[in-house]
């Protein structure tokens, strides 16, 4: 398969997936019990009818669906039920910044720390350094980010007072949520780099490099890293998934005004347009990440698109 064909095929499958998600989201949420103006306000049936009409809930379902699709294409995600007439797009736009910052910080910190751990474990394999790094990796993979977040908040913020408990004004506010979110990517990266590195260090060319007088760390740096960092690209997809999932609760715990925090709130108050918008946004984001990673990887390692090879 040529690169162009491969890219097109992946793009098509991505768009179909996205369309299915949009459609599912739309129809599923229409079956939900409850309405945005059910409990708190005592409205007459006439008033409810007017509100429904205003929000477009009175039209036939298929027409609402068409309108929604058209709106999506123009970046119009509807109007939030929760905040009086605020467009969802505007509501989310203000919240992308913190989520993105947190996500990027976590992925950079996690990948770097994980690479260091992995290299150390491989170069000093079967020593206490290796075991220590493995234990750290197992912990990072096993302890969910929101549990880590709660524990970090209790120990480092509530007890010791080293960091602010919650909020989003200074850099200090970002430290604990970043650590909590970085644990899983760190564990993944450490495991991955260690496996790749052990393989490289056992190879003939590593032997040759050592015979030429390079020390173990130099071999790891010059030969190992180059060969193990590129395949790490494939980890980006799963990492992004884990980060998004984790950010939902971690943002809540640390009071970060991000997308995840908004989603949790919107779920609790039946704000369908916002829930829909966030699920679609998340899906689109993840699909794009996976798509870009797959295409990049097929450039680096053409075996992927020729069928077979690693994935």
């Amino acid at each position: 398969m040529t690169l162009a064909r491969y890219t097109l095929r992946r793009l098509a499958s991505m768009l179909v997936t996205l369309w299915i998600i949009v459609t599912l989201t739309f129809f599923l949420l229409r079956f939900l019990p409850g309405s945005p103006w059910a409990n708190p306000m005592d409205l007459s049936p006439e008033q409810v009818a007017i509100l429904n009409e205003h929000a477009g809930l009175g039209r036939p379902l298929i027409e609402q669906y068409g309108l929604y699709l058209r709106g999506l294409l123009t970046g119009d995600l509807g109007v939030s039920f929760q905040f009086r007439d605020q467009p969802v797009t505007a509501l989310l736009a203000g919240r992308i910044g913190p989520s993105l910052q947190l996500g990027l910080q976590a992925i950079v910190v996690g990948a770097l720390a994980g690479t260091v751990l992995g290299v150390v474990a491989a170069v000093r394999s079967n020593t206490w350094l290796d075991s220590g790094s493995t234990v750290t990796a197992v912990l990072g993979r096993s302890v969910p980010s929101f549990v880590a977040a709660a524990l970090l908040q209790y120990v480092l913020a509530v007890r010791l007072g080293w960091f602010p408990i919650a909020g989003w004004s200074f850099f200090a506010h970002t430290v604990l949520p970043t650590i909590a979110l970085a644990l899983a990517p760190m564990a993944d990266a450490a495991r991955f780099v260690r496996t790749e590195m052990v393989e490289v260090l056992a190879s003939d060319y590593a032997d040759l490099a050592r015979a030429g007088g390079l020390g173990p760390w130099q071999v790891a740096w010059k030969h190992g890293l180059r060969n193990s960092v590129i395949p790490m690209l494939t980890l980006l997809g799963p990492m992004a998934v884990a980060l998004l999932t984790g950010s939902l609760v971690v943002e809540n715990i640390f009071g970060v005004p991000g997308i995840g925090e908004q989603l949790v709130r919107s779920i609790l108050v039946n704000d369908y347009p916002t829930v829909m918008a966030v699920t679609i946004l998340y899906s689109a984001l993840l699909l794009v990440v996976v798509f870009v990673v797959d295409v990049l990887y097929s450039v680096v390692d053409p075996r992927v698109r020729l069928g077979g090879g690693r994935r």
Binding site: S13, T17, I20, L32, V241, L287
Partner: peptide, 22 residues
Amino acid sequence: QRVLEVLAGIPTLVVLVLMLLV
């Protein structure tokens, strides 16, 4: 496999949130 490819693209988080709302 095409069906699988499309389904695999749907994030677990999204599926869970939607299904559990309903």
